[in-house]
């Protein structure tokens, strides 16, 4: 559910249809109605209000630019929906570039038959997420595809932001000795989504952890600047995929300490039941960072003092040994290689 107060202030407008039809993407009267009474009204700001083909603005400084598409199913999940995810996902990609998000584009591909109130709820979630993250949607597009040619709603967001003046992050800066931190509990998002899918009902209330991360990144860059060597958000493929990419691209090894990897007990239990490895489960509201060893203690303290980093842990280090491999020290003292995930994780038979 999105913020209830805002929902009450913004009732569903009187539209001629209670579902999305092909006409809403035709560019004609219905499209106009949907935009004027819906999208423009909800997301109103100076640039968007010009209703131009694109947004015109000035930016001063080093700029980061990124794009992401969101096709999640189901579109509504505990305490959030695809709209919030579409804003936070792109905001966080910018944050991982060391940039503070400024403007977003927003494109919808809607499936014919989507209920107007569902679209409305997604729009409201987008608005709330934009307000939280301090970004504006300044341009966008809406298309409608025939029933069966989509899955309710697909969203693309593209974002632009200004890079923090002290940020010097990048793969080329990662070096042996760097300490690896994770900013919060792993696997929460992926398991929350899975719990919503067909046939899976857990008694516990698992929530997606989607949240904007750029303010935490800004605070850390303010304090530690170039000592932060790399920022990454371990979304699809989980920690395993991102760390393997880093190891592969830097030619260095990464050592992980299983007993330090923070995970909520109910998420860990769900992974046990479903036969999934939490290292491979998707995350949303957390980030990984590789930090120079000499500031690691101060960094840990600073990160844990931030609201986004309360559960942060030091989970490993970059090493010269086992180049291009991620090696996990198991909680019981064994060692194993953590490989790149192969396709989607599939639940086990027994």
């Amino acid at each position: 559910m999105t913020n209830l107060a805002i929902q009450l202030q913004c009732p569903l407008p009187q539209l001629d249809f209670d579902i999305i039809t092909l006409g809403h993407g035709s560019g004609g009267l219905l499209t106009n109605q949907l935009l004027e009474k819906g999208v423009f009204k909800i997301l109103s700001n100076d640039l968007l209000d010009q209703h131009h083909d694109g947004a015109i603005f000035e930016l001063n400084g080093k700029t980061a630019f990124t794009t992401d598409s969101f096709v999640i199913s189901p579109i509504f999940f505990p305490h959030s929906n695809i709209g919030e995810l579409a804003v936070n996902g792109t905001v966080n990609d910018l944050a991982m570039c060391g940039a503070m998000p400024k403007y977003l584009s927003l494109s919808f591909i809607l499936e014919e038959g989507l209920r107007m109130e569902e679209f409305w709820e997604v729009l409201l979630a987008i608005r709330v997420a934009c307000q939280k993250a301090g970004v504006q949607v300044v341009t966008g597009d809406t298309k409608v595809v025939e029933k069966g040619k989509g899955d309710k709603i697909f969203i693309n967001t593209t974002g632009i932001g200004l890079v923090h003046p002290q940020a010097q992050t990048g793969l080329q800066r990662v070096q042996a000795g760097d300490v690896v931190f994770v900013s919060g509990l792993v696997a929460s998002h992926g398991i929350a989504i899975m719990s919503m899918r067909e046939g899976l009902q857990f008694e516990t209330d698992l929530q997606s952890d989607t949240q904007p991360l750029h303010l935490a990144v800004k605070a850390l860059l303010d304090q530690f600047g170039s000592a932060i060597h790399l920022l990454k958000d371990p979304t699809r493929g989980g920690l395993a995929a991102v760390l393997n990419e880093i190891a592969r691209d830097t030619g260095l090894g990464i050592e992980l300490w299983q007993k330090n990897i923070p995970i909520a007990e109910q998420v860990e239990s769900a992974c046990e039941i479903l036969g999934l490895d939490p290292l491979y489960v998707a995350n949303e509201g957390i980030f990984l960072c590789m930090v120079a060893a000499d500031v690691a203690d101060a960094f840990e303290q600073a990160l844990r003092a931030l609201p986004e980093g309360r559960q942060a842990r030091r989970i490993g280090q970059v090493v010269q040994a086992h180049p291009k491999q991620v090696v996990l020290q198991s909680a019981i003292g064994g060692k194993r290689v953590v490989n790149m995930p192969i396709g989607e994780q599939l639940p086990r038979i027994c």
Partner: peptide, 19 residues
């Protein structure tokens, strides 16, 4: 293929030197 298959277990989790 299977996560319980011996080959996949070796492939995914094999000893560092054997990888």
């Amino acid at each position: 293929v299977s996560s319980e298959g011996a080959c996949a277990a070796y492939y995914h989790f094999s000893q560092i030197s054997e990888v």
